[in-house]
């Protein structure tokens, strides 16, 4: 079956890619665009490792078709830092407070946190935990992740 040529707008930059209709956004980002910061864990929508933002909303890219993401604004972890040398407040807080261990969940955690702070700049601890309901971490026990997000919210506010 023929590939379709689509326009993927990732982190503000347009990319023309030819994909099969059954290609997931996670595959297209990692394999066609080389943006391997987006991780693939379960592939069933449960773990959140593949979380990206589409038009500002967090989604799991393993259950999103690349063809359906065409023409929309996609933000991946590569688009979070303001420059090649600086980190944003969330990344900074994750590093400083030890919220990163193996790092596999981190991209998804940061994007879920960014989505939370975009509509709730001063979340309570409970709200932070609920916002991470779709992101699993096998290393940290979540505590430091929750603290880092609270810290970043304070820094932003």
């Amino acid at each position: 079956m023929a590939k379709v040529t689509i326009d993927l707008r990732v982190n503000g930059e347009p990319h023309e890619v030819a994909v099969h209709p059954w290609r997931t956004l996670a595959q297209a980002l990692r394999e066609d665009l080389g943006l391997t910061g987006t991780k693939i864990g379960c592939e069933t929508g449960d773990c959140g490792a593949c979380t990206v933002l589409i038009d500002g909303r967090s989604v799991t890219s393993c259950l999103t078709l690349a063809v359906e993401a065409a023409g929309r604004e996609i933000t991946t972890i590569e688009g979070v830092a303001p420059s090649g040398t600086d980190l944003d407040a969330l990344q900074e807080a994750f590093v400083r407070l030890g919220a990163v261990q193996c790092g596999y969940c981190t991209s998804g955690m940061i994007l879920s946190a960014r989505y939370l702070l975009s509509h709730n700049p001063a979340p309570t601890e409970l709200e932070i935990r609920q916002a991470l309901s779709g992101n699993l971490c096998r290393c940290t026990g979540y505590q430091k992740i929750v603290e880092a997000i609270a810290e970043a919210a304070k820094a932003n506010g």
Partner: peptide
């Protein structure tokens, strides 16, 4: 229902 991401989809 489900998770934040799934509710966004």
């Amino acid at each position: 229902t489900a998770t934040v991401q799934i509710r966004n989809m």
